[in-house]
Amino acid sequence: MAKAQETVLEINLNALEHNYRYLKSKISSKTKFLGVVKAYAYGSDAVAIAQKLVTVGADYLAVAYTEEGVALRNAGIKIPILVLHPQIVSFDTIIERCLEPNIYSERILTAFITAAERHQQKNYPVHLKFNTGLNRLGFNAHDISKITRKLAETSTIKVLSIFSHLAASEDINEKEFTLSQIKSFHEICTQIDAALPYIPFKHLANTSGIINYPEAHFDMVRSGIGLYGFGNDPIEDKNFIPIVTLKTNISQIHYLEANESVGYNRAFTSNSPIKTATLPLGHADGIGREYGNGKGVVCIHGHYAPIIGNTCMDMIMVDVTAIGCHEGDEVIVFGEKPTATEFAQGANTISYEVLTGISQRVKRVIIE
């Protein structure tokens, strides 16, 4: 890997394949695999990630919004793409670009049937989402009879799958709740199968569900964060490789005397002589103002350097008093050390937010 001469986000596709193979080893050879590539593939590069997942054998992809699916279609991605949170205004585009919508409420079901009729569709594939406890999106079990009646009245759409989402599959303390979700999903699927003249396939497990609940694998599993190198558990994290590394370099070094301040609002004042390094990234790049003043560290030559002062729009400052370094030297913001999880802990957040928050102005570099 080249030394960073500017702020870049390196994306390691070999690490992605490793993570995919590890997750596949946890499931039956007959179980389908869906890769979640929403939010620029968790802040990386959705097209590059999707292309790699197609190459290694993923069966499905998922995005949050319609335009994310359109971007993949424009890049030549042909495998099925599930749109997890479609909006009515995008239904025409969904049909025109052969995307598959999540139908999660009666309003969405009625509107999509209308759109499918307008496009003269027959058996257009849709996916029904049921709420089993996350209480975010999805039909409830008592909606089943109403749904199946509507489906019986039209031939424009066909239910390809039934799915739900686990709320706390990574938390061993919530095992009872997770098992209750799995039970509820089983019951919903039994009712749907009995009411329809065909059998949709089923999917429930996310990354932690794949690892912790083999009984929840059903016909397909869905993985997001696992593909990007995180197992939501310190022990499981060792089986994954983070696929992205945020690198930058030292723009300038300053030598401050005691009682000198650093950055806006003089948020940091030195107690003794210190050496600081200024780095070319800031809150416009995804390193929020919650970092700084000791919250968050970067790595320089294998040593941690705490962020000091307030984060600026385009710059952060770090304390390098105890580190032998020079202007132009490489800095790892997160990657293998610190990981995105470790970096996130400095601001009391999670790896998901750190990864997806990296600005699109940061140059992406694909490594394979």
Results as ranks from 00 to 15, higher is better:
K32Q: 11
T66L: 07
N19C: 07
G57K: 04
L9C: 08
Y65D: 06
F33L: 12
G35H: 08
Y20V: 05
L13V: 04
T7C: 12
E68L: 02
V54L: 10
A41N: 08
H18T: 07
A71E: 10
S28G: 10
I11N: 00
R21Y: 02
L16P: 08
Q51V: 08
I11C: 02
K52L: 14
E6A: 15
K38D: 04
T66C: 15
F33N: 02
R21P: 03
V63T: 06
V54Q: 14
V54N: 13
H18Y: 02
V54E: 15
K30I: 00
A46F: 03
Q5K: 11
A62M: 04
A46I: 05
S28L: 03
Y40N: 11
Y40P: 00
A71M: 09
Y65L: 11
G57D: 03
L13R: 04
S44M: 14
H18K: 10
I49D: 12
L34S: 06
Y42V: 03
A41W: 08
K30G: 01
N12S: 05
D45V: 09
Y20P: 07
K24G: 00
Q51F: 07
V47N: 05
L53F: 01
I11V: 09
K24H: 01
S28I: 02
A41C: 11
Y60W: 15
I49M: 14
V63C: 04
A15D: 09
V36P: 06
T55V: 05
S29F: 00
V8E: 15
I49Q: 07
Y65F: 12
A64S: 01
T55I: 05
T31S: 03
T66E: 08
T31M: 05
K38R: 03
V8R: 12
V47Y: 05
K38C: 03
A50H: 12
Y40D: 15
L53N: 04
L53M: 13
L9F: 07
K24P: 00
S44V: 10
V36Q: 09
L61F: 11
K38I: 04
R21S: 12
L61Y: 07
K26M: 07
V36G: 07
V54D: 15
E10Q: 13
